[in-house]
Design a protein around this nucleic acid. Structure first.
Lengths: 341, 341
DNA sequence: ATCGTTATCGGGAACGTTGCCAGTTGACAG
DNA sequence: CTGTCAACTGGCAACGTTCCCGATAACGAT
């Protein structure tokens, strides 16, 4: 606990704290000998500057906050790995918070991170967030924020997303080309950017292939598949339609596995009766029964690009800012669940 | 950015900072009217004490550090959820770091967290950590640490683990009772507490059922299944034995899925040719092909108990300390991969 | 009138660091 | 011998907060 401070060094070497400080910072106006003396002593005593004191002084912390819905999700944990790999190399620390898709938690986490003087924020919106004031306010006050994956339309800043439209289009098209006619879409709340983009891709693919769009084939699950009963109800509703779907395109990790679980439990054969394509980064897709056809997002890459943009924003405060929206390609990995022959 | 401070309040209300400070803290020696004035003004201006300043002053931060091997792992993310749920309620913040099973990273993270003045540490050891000085040193300097899951024998403090011996015993016994005779064990480096305990349970089960223990049936994967080729090599070695195993008991998430992937790729039928039981908390065990028999750890509970112990340690510095080792029961969930009829 | 008490408040130091402003030397030109 | 200028170093304030110590006034009690 008794960490050594600059003051201790000053006392031991009979110097002033300022001198020590400048010596350690290798200032030109310090006698090389003194410098050497200080540096060696500091080294020997294993001196580490106190980041808290520095933060207090400079209102900077060399750390960035990450707010994501949850970490128990392959997409987000890969995202984090991407973020960390870059941030680490650039000398930034990463502080992770989960919103658990709750608006209140997101706000609380945001406030805490700000009071902790993070230099910037990386955010993927909670599914239940509709009011964006807490972020808008911060941005106006000059805090750099970069959004990724689930991004708000209303805020102007750098954003990194997957090409959801193309991914959904490709997935739907794949199902169509595999012979499916009645393709359902199980997705998240409509006010997520993801949802509308994927929905649009899905619709466009239907249209381009002369299939009708039927609103009753689209189900929005507010809790993103985390509440089983909601899933189950949504799927049950679709199955009870006069013409039940012969394929389901699911829009997230949890929705996909949740859907598979429900079908399995109902003894509905995949893909014979219903084919599935999931928008998911789940790691064991090819170990599933049946192996899952998936639209995979370049999560790691997304994380990396997002930090890069953020750190650029932090270190070169906006030259009143052209903001970028980077849209990264997804890849469709075809396995058996889509019934592709 | 221009957060309001106690000084601002003092100036605005024509008081001294000390008075404001005490008013906010509801000190008895402040005139109730003054108090009201201050509190209302603070409320109106949305005053929040600066945690950095507090940390500097008290060398306390009301936050705890968590160092785990990796987040992209169901066991650990559940652990985190358990930790957060309790810590949050007790007014502590949780700062998560991944060691990625690297000793250097573990040390770096530890140092950073300590310099950031976390009030305590929750640690699950990196698989490549053998030198424990960085933790021992901290403990001697009075920093509360609680280990969980992967714990060191050499350090005396609270520990929370799963009952690895019993879990492994039960898994092995289950395989034996399902008619398997040549049960292999795919596991992590031997210097992890987990590994030895699970190995012991495995051995004991063999012995109790009059099966010979054969060292060539035990493979230690240093990278815990994260490096596919290592997995593959280990499994290949076992398959090339004169008497290849008819069952494999795998000791972790990644080892389990890795093993299944290799068998699948080699077109070895599970469980017909080789049965599998995995020590894993993977969420989609029943969606796998075949559904996976698993020894599940009460990860959430483990996390919760560990924080409780840690916070107790933080808030009631050791009454020279009876240290607890809590061992929580695992549960064997039987599915098809073990070939149970 | 003097003193102790109580109630209420302000001053200043401290946490660790940096940066500005001032010294204090010594050398050297004038 | 003085003035100037480097070269080097020290003092101090500041970041936001708390806490110890006093200070002030009112008010009985002595």
């Amino acid at each position: 606990m008794e960490a050594i401070t600059i003051k201790d060094i000053a006392k031991a070497l009979n110097l002033s704290t300022s001198t020590v400080s400048r010596a350690l910072r290798n200032s030109y106006e310090i006698n090389p000998e003194t410098k050497k003396l200080v540096m060696e002593y500091a080294e020997r005593m294993n001196y580490r500057p106190n980041p808290i004191a520095l933060s207090l002084k400079d209102s900077k912390s060399k750390s960035i906050g990450v707010i994501i819905p949850e970490i128990a999700n392959h997409f987000f944990s890969q995202l984090i790995n991407g973020i960390e790999s870059i941030a680490y190399n650039l000398g930034y620390h990463v502080v992770i918070f989960q919103s658990h898709d709750s608006y209140e938690r997101e706000v609380a986490n945001t406030n805490y991170l700000v009071s902790r003087k993070v230099d910037g924020l990386l955010v993927s919106l909670a599914s239940l967030t509709t009011d964006l004031f807490h972020f808008q306010d911060l941005m106006e006050r000059g805090l750099p924020i970069v959004f990724l994956d689930r991004v708000p339309k209303e805020i102007e800043t750098h954003k990194v997303v997957a090409d959801n439209f193309a991914g959904a289009y490709e997935a739907t098209k794949h199902l169509i080309q595999s012979g499916r006619k009645r393709i359902a879409h199980l997705t998240s709340p409509i006010y997520l950017s993801n949802t509308t983009e994927r929905l649009a891709g899905y619709k466009q693919a239907l249209e381009d292939h002369q299939l009708p769009f039927d609103e009753s084939y689209v189900k929005y699950c507010h809790y993103g598949g985390k509440i089983v009963s909601e899933n189950e109800a949504a799927i049950q509703e679709m199955l009870s339609l006069p013409e039940p779907p012969d394929a389901i395109f699911t829009a997230s990790d949890k929705l996909t596995t949740g859907c598979m679980a429900v079908l399995q439990q109902k003894k509905i054969r995949i893909p014979d009766e219903i084919a599935i394509v999931g928008f998911t980064n789940i790691g064991v897709a090819d170990l599933l029964n049946p192996p899952l056809t998936a639209v995979v997002q370049p999560a790691m890459d997304m994380g990396q690009q997002a930090v890069e943009l953020l750190i650029r924003l932090i270190e070169h405060p906006q030259k009143n800012a052209e903001f970028e929206i980077r849209s990264l390609k997804t890849s469709l990995i075809i396995r058996q669940s889509s019934g592709h022959s």
